[in-house]
């Protein structure tokens, strides 16, 4: 009786949350294994298991799904690595070096991030159009151009997470290195980078997930079928009123999501502490 009173509501709440959370995901799985390509989000119990949708993704020449996956990997991968290189250097400087305007710099960075970036798209578009006029390989409609634009946010996005980590490395280590004759650059490369490498890996993966998820800029930039990222490509399946293709969309979503979900679950601990930032410290 006491067990009931203590734990029943807990299980009740948890089961409700689990059903709510799992419901759409379950439907996606069911839909992806249904043979008809139409909207299958009503059949709660699968009446068949068919791999038609998966085959379509891999064999239908009009759906370059693997190319999209590859594109997402290239774009998100490059952005993740380059932006962590940029972000780590900035975080180190903000945390460790003494210079004028440090507080102002951090505040400016914070403020810039609050501008609704979507609206600056028009200007970004014009800039990229201009670049395309003389360097077509970096202009509109190219992945390299898109990567450049994403890097605009590299300094701001990861800096809070990284700076928090750098702050947690005891400053005495730096001072000892300095006494041993290390320059700032040497401290950075030979002390900070090795110490921070686990965190840098986590931030790289987070940045990868973030870029993988980006939709608006990618849609604006990547017009040609063959250079789209998976997010843009899959969205087109269900965008048009007459071209709804939920089966293939569901199968594609599952293939695209599984790696992300696995990365996420394995990094849970770090992500949670990163999310909570300084707030949970107290």
């Amino acid at each position: 009786m006491k067990w009931l009173r203590e734990n029943l509501w807990r299980h009740g709440v948890a089961i409700f949350a689990v059903l709510f959370a799992a419901f759409p995901l379950y439907l996606v799985v069911v839909t992806s294994f249904a043979s008809s390509g139409s909207l299958q989000l009503t059949s709660f119990i699968p009446n068949e298991i068919s791999f038609v949708n998966y085959e379509k993704l891999f064999n239908d020449p009009t759906i370059p799904f693997m190319t999209w996956m590859w594109n997402s990997l290239i774009v998100a991968g490059s952005v993740a690595i380059l932006s962590v290189i940029i972000g780590a250097a900035s975080a180190f400087a903000f945390s460790r070096l003494k210079f004028k305007g440090k507080k102002l710099g951090l505040q400016t960075l914070l403020l810039i991030q609050m501008f609704p970036a979507i609206l600056a798209i028009a200007a970004v578009y014009l800039i990229m159009e201009g670049i395309g006029n003389f360097a077509p390989e970096f202009g509109l409609g190219t992945q390299s151009g898109l990567i450049l634009v994403y890097l605009g946010g590299a300094m701001g996005v990861n800096i809070w997470l990284l700076k928090g980590f750098v702050d947690s490395i005891p400053i005495e280590i730096d001072e000892a290195a300095k006494i041993d004759g290390a320059s700032e650059m040497q401290t950075y490369w030979q002390i900070f980078i090795p110490l921070a490498s686990p965190v840098l890996a986590v931030v790289t993966l987070l940045s990868f997930i973030g870029t993988f998820n980006e939709y608006i800029l990618a849609r604006l930039f990547l017009v040609d079928m063959d250079i789209r990222t998976v997010a843009v490509g899959l969205q087109q399946f269900v965008a048009g009123q007459y071209s709804e293709n939920w089966g293939a969309f569901a199968a594609g979503s599952i293939i695209a999501s599984v790696p992300i979900v696995l990365i996420f679950l394995s990094l849970q601990r770090y992500i949670v502490s990163g999310l909570a930032g300084g707030a949970v410290k107290g």
Binding site: A17, A21, L25, L39, T42, F264
Partner: peptide
Amino acid sequence: IIILPYAVPSIMSILIWGGMFDTEFGA
């Protein structure tokens, strides 16, 4: 299970919800 919605790329889940709210065929 409860963390899953947060881990799945949100673009995909938003579109799926869009399908689930469909008048004729929605779950």
